[in-house]
Design a protein around this nucleic acid. Structure first.
Lengths: 103, 103
DNA sequence: CGGAATTAGGGTAATTCGGGAC
DNA sequence: TTTGTCCGAATTACCCTAATTC
C-alpha cells in the first residue's frame, strides 16, 4: 500500500501521479473515450484500458499488466503493444465468477 | 506489524483522497469531487485496501482480515488473492448503521 | 505535427496472505 | 472472545525512462 511509503500522502491516494480524476467512476484514459461507440462496429467487444481495470480492482495499472503477463487475464494488444482487456471478463472476475482455468 | 508508528493522517481524510490535482496547477474551487466526463464507463464500486480499512477502524490490518474471514465484512479478491473491501459498507459500519445480521 | 496523458519495460520497497502460537 | 504480534512467501506499489495513444 501507500500509507507510509516515502511519499507523505493520505490513504486514498494510490495512483495519483498519473491519474487526474478518477472519482468514483472510471475516467477515460485521456478524457476522450468515445472512440468505440461512434463508428459502426460489427463484432466489437467492449475493451478496457489498463487504467480502467486497475480502478475497478483498486490496484495499480502495473498490477493489471502482471496479471496479463501471468495469464490470469486475457489481454489484447494494440499495434503499438499496449494492452486492452475484455470488459466482460473483468466484470466476471470482479463478481467472483471463476473463469476457464486450465489448471 | 507496527503500522501505527508513524502515520500522520487523520481518519477523516481517509475517505476520498483519490482526487488529485495536477502538479502545482489549480484544481478548481472545490478540489473535491470531479465531474464525470463520459458515460462509457463501466460500473465500478469504490474499493478500499486492508490498510485503509484498518486505519479507519484503528485496528491492525490483520484484524480486518479476521473480520472478512468471519463473514462480518464483504471482501473482494484481487487476482493475486489480496482483499479489497467495499467503501460503502465500511462507511456504513463506521457510521453505526447496522448491516444485515444473520440473527 | 505538436502536446498531454497513458502504457510498457525493469527494479526496489512496502503491503498482504497464510498459518499458527502466545 | 477479541485483538495484536512474529514468521516466510507471495503479491502489490512506487520509482525511472522510452514508446504509444489520441
Amino acid at each position: 500500500m501507500a500509507w507510509k511509503s516515502r511519499t507523505p500522502m493520505a490513504i486514498g491516494d494510490i495512483r495519483d501521479k498519473r491519474n487526474k480524476a478518477v472519482t468514483g467512476s472510471l475516467a477515460g484514459p485521456h478524457g476522450g473515450e468515445a472512440a468505440q461507440m461512434s463508428a459502426r462496429t460489427p463484432e466489437a467487444e467492449p475493451l478496457l484500458t489498463p487504467a480502467e481495470v486497475a480502478t475497478m480492482f483498486r490496484v495499480d495499472p502495473k498490477t493489471v499488466t502482471r496479471w496479463a503477463k501471468a495469464g490470469k487475464l486475457t489481454s489484447i494488444r494494440t499495434l503499438g503493444g499496449h494492452r486492452r482487456y475484455r470488459e466482460t471478463e473483468v466484470r466476471a472476475l470482479l463478481a467472483g465468477i471463476p473463469q476457464q482455468r486450465s489448471e
